Amino acid sequence: MSGIRVRAALLSDDTALARLDRATWSTLHAVSPPPEEHGDFFSERFGPDAYLVAEVDARPAGFIRFAPPTSLASNTHVRQIQGLAVDGWARGRGVGLELVMAALEAARGQGARRMTLRVLGHNTPARRLYEAAGFTVEGVLPGEFRLDGAYVDDVFMGRAL
Rank of each mutant, 00 (worst) to 15 (best):
T70H: 03
L72V: 05
L72F: 14
L72E: 13
A73M: 09
A73E: 10
A73S: 12
A73H: 11
S74D: 09
S74F: 09
S74A: 14
S74H: 13
S74G: 10
T76Y: 08
T76F: 07
H77R: 04
H77Y: 06
H77Q: 01
V78S: 06
V78E: 10
R79A: 03
R79P: 00
R79M: 10
Q80E: 15
Q80P: 00
I81R: 00
I81G: 03
Q82T: 12
Q82E: 14
L84V: 12
L84M: 11
A85K: 07
A85C: 09
V86Y: 05
D87A: 15
D87H: 12
D87S: 15
G88C: 09
W89Y: 12
W89C: 10
A90G: 04
R91L: 04
R91H: 05
G92Y: 02
R93V: 01
G94Q: 07
G94N: 11
G94Y: 06
V95K: 02
V95I: 11
G96K: 07
G96F: 03
E98R: 15
E98L: 08
L99T: 06
L99K: 01
M101L: 15
A102C: 05
A102Y: 02
A103G: 06
A103E: 02
L104T: 02
E105Y: 03
E105K: 14
E105A: 15
E105S: 14
A106V: 01
A106F: 00
A107P: 07
A107I: 03
A107V: 03
R108W: 05
R113I: 00
R113L: 13
R113P: 01
R113C: 08
R114K: 14
L117S: 04
L117D: 01
L117N: 03
R118S: 13
R118Q: 14
R118A: 12
V119L: 08
V119E: 05
L120Q: 10
L120V: 11
H122E: 10
P125E: 12
P125M: 12
P125K: 08
A126P: 11
A126G: 13
R128L: 14
L129Q: 01
E131Y: 07
E131M: 05
E131C: 00
A132N: 10
A132G: 12
A132Y: 04
A132I: 02
A133R: 11
A133L: 04
G134P: 02
G134Y: 00
G134K: 02
F135L: 14
T136A: 14
T136I: 08
V137D: 03
V137Y: 12
V137C: 12
V137A: 06
G139C: 05
G139Y: 06
V140G: 02
V140L: 04
V140D: 07
P142C: 00
G143E: 09
G143Q: 07
G143V: 05
E144S: 12
E144K: 14
E144P: 00
E144L: 13
R146T: 14
R146C: 13
R146Q: 11
R146L: 13
D148V: 00
D148P: 06
G149H: 06
V152Y: 07
V152E: 10
V152N: 11
D154E: 06
V155Q: 11
V155S: 11
